[in-house]
Deep mutational scan, measured.
Amino acid sequence: MGFKLLSKLLVYLTASIMAIASPLAFSVDSSGEYPTVSEIPVGEVRLYQIADGVWSHIATQSFDGAVYPSNGLIVRDGDELLLIDTAWGAKNTAALLAEIEKQIGLPVTRAVSTHFHDDRVGGVDVLRAAGVATYASPSTRRLAEVEGNEIPTHSLEGLSSSGDAVRFGPVELFYPGAAHSTDNLIVYVPSASVLYGGCAIYELSRTSAGNVADADLAEWPTSIERIQQHYPEAQFVIPGHGLPGGLDLLKHTTNVVKAHTNRSVVE
């Protein structure tokens, strides 16, 4: 069995187990497998329904001669939608809004960016022009300005110390501490036991640490421990890039980060 097929099978099995364990909360999309990078042309966006009122959005972007996937989250909030992270750029984010209108038909009224990198804030200006209120932590807003990236308009308070959590509509926002970046936030959907790890969490097929220019490698494993301790009931975990899975993604990420750190020390 090929690795790609095995990865998709694991996603399907995880979703099936969740649907059985929580039949009222989960209505997993039966329309197909989780979209992969090879299936999404740059400039297009796919939506994948995880649970009743919960979707991931998947886009792709060219970077350094390669094409990478990027995940975000959409959560229903009454007759409105909360968006977590842009679709990595203005063109993708405009396509995301169009796809949401086509498939869901509810307005996106608020959006949260989970850290300051372009795959999370690139497209904020498109959201703002569409009347979406954009939010991020003060740290993310400051770092985005320093980096020359787009800056969300509103500040999220109460997320300055490791372990801080605040309720934001249908989700809980959690600051686990520094990891992929010093400002990275985690998003949890309690009604569906869905954990969105953003770039602080890796997919299972990833074996290298990737972009760690703004990471705190020493603190990252401790931050992941905080996530595990705060959300032990999480059933569906979405990484910032690639295929979702279960809580095993947290341990896998820790292993990859520690291996990278150990290699760096040896070198």
Results as ranks from 00 to 15, higher is better:
residue 3 F to H: 04
residue 5 L to I: 12
residue 7 S to K: 13
residue 7 S to Y: 15
residue 9 L to H: 03
residue 10 L to K: 05
residue 12 Y to S: 13
residue 14 T to I: 04
residue 15 A to V: 07
residue 16 S to E: 07
residue 19 A to L: 12
residue 20 I to T: 11
residue 20 I to Q: 00
residue 20 I to D: 05
residue 21 A to V: 14
residue 21 A to Y: 07
residue 25 A to E: 08
residue 28 V to T: 14
residue 35 P to H: 14
residue 39 E to N: 03
residue 40 I to W: 06
residue 40 I to E: 08
residue 41 P to G: 08
residue 43 G to R: 09
residue 48 Y to P: 08
residue 49 Q to C: 05
residue 49 Q to W: 06
residue 51 A to I: 09
residue 52 D to L: 07
residue 53 G to C: 05
residue 57 H to T: 02
residue 58 I to N: 07
residue 58 I to A: 06
residue 59 A to F: 06
residue 60 T to A: 08
residue 61 Q to V: 11
residue 64 D to G: 05
residue 65 G to H: 03
residue 67 V to N: 12
residue 70 S to T: 14
residue 73 L to S: 09
residue 76 R to K: 13
residue 79 D to A: 08
residue 84 I to F: 06
residue 85 D to G: 02
residue 85 D to Q: 00
residue 87 A to M: 02
residue 88 W to N: 13
residue 88 W to F: 12
residue 88 W to D: 03
residue 90 A to E: 05
residue 91 K to R: 10
residue 95 A to M: 15
residue 96 L to W: 01
residue 97 L to M: 07
residue 98 A to H: 14
residue 98 A to D: 02
residue 101 E to G: 05
residue 105 G to A: 13
residue 107 P to D: 05
residue 109 T to Y: 04
residue 113 S to D: 02
residue 115 H to C: 00
residue 118 D to S: 07
residue 121 V to R: 15
residue 122 G to E: 04
residue 127 L to A: 10
residue 128 R to M: 15
residue 132 V to L: 10
residue 133 A to R: 12
residue 137 S to G: 07
residue 139 S to L: 10
residue 140 T to M: 02
residue 144 A to R: 12
residue 145 E to M: 13
residue 146 V to K: 13
residue 148 G to C: 12
residue 149 N to W: 09
residue 152 P to E: 04
residue 154 H to F: 14
residue 155 S to E: 05
residue 156 L to W: 12
residue 157 E to H: 11
residue 158 G to F: 15
residue 161 S to T: 04
residue 163 G to W: 07
residue 164 D to R: 07
residue 165 A to V: 08
residue 168 F to R: 02
residue 168 F to A: 05
residue 171 V to E: 00
residue 171 V to Q: 00
residue 172 E to P: 00
residue 176 P to Q: 01
residue 180 H to K: 00
residue 181 S to Y: 01
residue 191 S to P: 03
residue 191 S to C: 04
residue 194 V to D: 00
residue 196 Y to N: 02
residue 198 G to T: 02
residue 199 C to P: 01
residue 199 C to K: 01
residue 199 C to E: 00
residue 200 A to P: 05
residue 204 L to Y: 15
residue 205 S to Y: 15
residue 205 S to K: 13
residue 206 R to D: 04
residue 206 R to W: 05
residue 206 R to Y: 12
residue 207 T to K: 12
residue 209 A to K: 06
residue 211 N to L: 07
residue 211 N to H: 06
residue 212 V to G: 12
residue 212 V to E: 10
residue 212 V to H: 03
residue 217 L to P: 03
residue 217 L to D: 15
residue 218 A to E: 05
residue 222 T to M: 04
residue 223 S to M: 04
residue 224 I to W: 00
residue 226 R to V: 12
residue 229 Q to T: 02
residue 232 P to Y: 12
residue 234 A to F: 14
residue 236 F to P: 10
residue 237 V to E: 01
residue 237 V to L: 04
residue 237 V to A: 08
residue 238 I to P: 01
residue 238 I to W: 06
residue 239 P to G: 08
residue 243 L to V: 07
residue 243 L to N: 15
residue 243 L to P: 05
residue 246 G to S: 04
residue 246 G to F: 06
residue 247 L to N: 15
residue 252 H to W: 08
residue 252 H to P: 01
residue 254 T to N: 13
residue 255 N to I: 15
residue 257 V to Y: 12
residue 260 H to F: 04
residue 261 T to F: 02
residue 263 R to I: 03
residue 263 R to F: 10
residue 267 E to A: 13
residue 267 E to Y: 07
